[in-house]
C-alpha cells in the first residue's frame, strides 16, 4: 500500500498525495454530482453538465423502498459507466468495508463515497482512508462528524441529508449545523478550542484548522434530498461548495431537462431570475417523503459514528 503522502515513482513524481486527492474535489466545486444506474443515465448526466457521476445499482429511493442489505455495486456495472463518460466517476462502499474500497481502487474509480446509503459493515469504525491513493468523500451531520472523517483521511465532505426522500430539510439541518459549529469557534482561545473538541468529539488539529480557515479544510458538498433547482441554489446559498443529486433527477419526469436546470441553478445560485427561468416547465419532481413518516430505524443519516 502507498504511504500516507503518496507513492514516490522512479522519475521523482508522487502519486496519490493528499494534495492531489483533495485537489480533485477542488475541481468539482460549483458543480453537480449525479447518481446514475446505467451508462445511458451517465451520458445524460454528462450532457446535462454534471461535473461527476456516482455509479450505483439502485438510487437511494429504490434502496429505501426495496430494503435488504445494500452493498457495493457490481464491478461490471461500474466499469460500463467508467467507459461511457469522460467526467470523473465515483462509487459507494459500505461504512467500514475497506475491502470494498480496495476493490473500487483496483477498478480505477476516481472517488469513493464511504456511504451511509449502503448498509454499514462496521458499527464502530470507519475506513482508514490515508493509505489509499484514491480519494474519499464521507457524509456528516455536524462539525464533529466532519472533522472525524477528515482525520481518517477523507479528502471531501458532504452533508448527509436524508437520501432518497426528495426532501431537502435534513440537508439544510446538517449544512446549518456545520456552519454553526464553525462560527462557534471564532474568538475561542486554544484552551476553549480543546474543550470544544472534547465536547463534539472532534480531533483538535482539524478543529484548529477549521477555526483558522473559517470553513472546513476540504471541499464540502450538500447531499440527501435535493430535488429541484431551487433546492440546489438553497444549499449553495447556505455556503456549500456544490451538490450531489441522487434520486431527484432520474426519479423525475424529464431527467435531462431537470438535470440541466439543477446544473444552471448551482452556478447561478445567487441569481433568482436565472433560477426562475430554468425552473419553469420541468414536469413532475420526484414524489418525496416527509421525514416523520419514516420509521426511526430506517433513517439513513443515523448510520456512521
Amino acid at each position: 500500500m502507498a504511504e500516507r503522502n503518496g507513492a514516490r515513482n522512479g522519475n521523482g513524481s508522487v502519486k496519490g498525495s493528499f494534495k492531489v486527492k483533495a485537489g480533485l474535489a477542488q475541481m468539482l466545486k460549483g458543480g453537480v454530482i449525479m447518481d446514475v444506474v446505467t451508462p445511458e443515465h451517465a451520458r445524460i448526466a454528462q450532457d446535462a453538465g454534471a461535473c461527476a457521476v456516482m455509479a450505483l445499482e439502485r438510487v437511494p429511493a429504490d434502496i429505501r423502498r426495496e430494503g435488504g442489505v445494500a452493498r457495493m455495486s457490481d464491478p461490471d456495472l461500474i466499469k460500463s459507466i467508467m467507459v461511457a463518460v469522460t467526467i470523473p466517476v465515483m462509487a459507494k462502499c459500505r461504512i467500514g468495508h475497506f475491502v470494498e474500497a480496495q476493490v473500487l481502487e483496483a477498478l480505477g474509480i476516481d472517488y469513493i463515497d464511504e456511504s451511509e446509503v449502503l448498509t454499514p459493515a462496521d458499527e464502530e469504525n470507519h475506513i482508514d482512508k490515508h493509505p489509499f491513493k484514491v480519494p474519499f468523500v464521507c457524509g456528516c451531520r455536524d462539525l464533529g462528524e466532519a472533522t472525524r472523517r477528515i482525520a481518517e483521511g477523507a479528502a471531501m465532505i458532504r452533508t448527509k441529508g436524508e437520501a432518497g426522500t426528495g426532501n431537502v430539510v435534513e440537508a439544510v439541518r446538517h449544512a446549518r449545523a456545520v456552519n454553526a459549529g464553525i462560527r462557534k469557534l471564532q474568538g475561542m482561545n486554544h484552551a476553549e478550542l480543546v474543550r470544544e473538541a472534547k465536547q463534539i468529539g472532534a480531533p483538535v488539529e482539524v478543529l484548529a484548522e477549521c477555526q483558522k480557515l473559517g470553513r472546513l479544510p476540504v471541499v464540502n458538498f450538500a447531499a440527501g434530498g435535493i430535488a429541484t433547482p431551487a433546492d440546489a441554489a438553497l444549499m449553495m446559498q447556505l455556503g456549500v461548495d456544490g451538490v450531489f443529486v441522487g434520486s431527484g433527477i432520474f426519479k423525475s419526469e424529464d431527467p435531462l431537462k431537470r438535470a440541466k436546470a439543477i446544473v444552471a441553478a448551482t452556478t447561478y445560485f445567487d441569481k433568482p431570475d436565472m433560477i426562475a427561468e430554468v425552473s419553469a416547465g420541468l414536469g413532475e419532481a420526484m414524489r418525496g417523503l416527509e421525514i416523520p413518516a419514516i420509521p426511526k430505524d430506517e433513517l439513513l443519516a443515523a448510520r456512521g459514528w
Binding site: G6, K19, V20, G23, T86, P88
Partner: peptide, 15 residues
C-alpha cells in the same frame, strides 16, 4: 487528450 495522464489514481505531483 482529455485525462491523457490517466484517471484520478494516476494524478501526481512533479517538479
Amino acid at each position: 487528450r482529455r485525462n491523457g495522464y490517466g484517471r484520478q489514481v494516476d494524478s501526481f505531483e512533479a517538479q
